[in-house]
Design a protein around this nucleic acid. Sequence first.
RNA 1: GGGCCCAUAGCUCAGUUGGUUAGAGCAGAGGCCUUUUAAGCCUCGUGUCGUGGGUUCGAGUCCCACUGGGCCCU
Length: 350
Amino acid sequence: MAQKIYVGMSGGVDSSVTAALLKQQGYDVTGVYMKNWSQDLPGMKCPWKDDYQDAKRVAVQLDIPFKMYDFEKEYRQKVVDYMVAEYQAGRTPNPDVMCNQEVKFKLFLDTALEDGADMIATGHYARTEGGQLLIAKNAEKDQTYFLYRVTSEALSKSLFPIGNFATKDEVRAIAKKLGLATAGKKDSQGICFVGKVGIKDFLLHELGPQPAGDIVDQKGKTIGRHDGAIFYTIGQRHGLEVGGGLPYYVVGKDMDKNEVYVTTDLQDERLWHRKLTLTDVHWIDGEPDFGKTLQVRTRYRAPLAAVEVVEKISDNRLNITLVDEIRALTPGQSAVFYDGETCLGGGIVI
RNA sequence: GGGCCCAUAGCUCAGUUGGUUAGAGCAGAGGCCUUUUAAGCCUCGUGUCGUGGGUUCGAGUCCCACUGGGCCCU
């Protein structure tokens, strides 16, 4: 009897092709639309209905059962509340990491299993093998950075067919060939409510206006005013509305003083880091061998950095030193470890 | 009181020996890229050239006065 696979279908091309491929391969496929957010926001209509329709249309084309899971409440708690709280604390969170950890590969997986599924599948650009997480064949589109907090158990029950394609064109070609309704659809952004609205407007909507404060340059001079320190992240250039010669980059902020620090000096030492401390460390397949030369990525699509020293502070906390300095290390973002093609896990930068 | 500088787009400034539609960077807007936030890349505008006179065929560019900044001197 064919294995029963529940495919998370977002209404995009990737997850549509995922379902199609698995069906072709003979699996017993069921499509599931996860409704995580449906609220309209000022200036933007939430596209969830369109996405749902697209996903359903494809399911009909593929002749597979289709259902919807409503995770709005949990998504709100686990992802949105976390995200807002982190911003308030002055950090820059990564909601999609949390979404994968808590919603897609926990809630969705558990719900699907309860409904009778043997495994789940998503349209992620990643591969998995024996409970391990591997980067996608298409390294440019690799999404393991968002998946490093998923457990080995969850991975062993997950399939990522898209991860085996070397290019996005191949994925689109399949969608086109099969005549899928989503073939020509533009790549979607991760979180619908920050997609078009922007994080600043979203936070304003959630938290209301923030207290203004000083913008201070590398000489200690106040060069302008910001409209809320929570809106700014390390390395950021635009949005400060401060002109005069060279671009200013955010190098830090003090939430108590409500000050944002900037520099025009690209070599400013506050913009470059070799040492970082991680918390909430999670290893997918157990603690790796730190004797090997590992690589770490501290921002999605940022270049990999070679790790020189790893010092364990406790089970879920460690210090690492890099071979070379990296730009704009940002508290709240994740540091994800790689050993060649294997994504090992990682932690949150503090 | 005297002397010397400066005042040009929101900001920092460039504007040749006076000559057609005054420019660069930064900021801002739009787009690309991107399942976080950013970086990055592409495109785009904007100005009573401090005010008032004068010289000249023609002045941001020369002269005078004034106003506002800065500096120096007894």
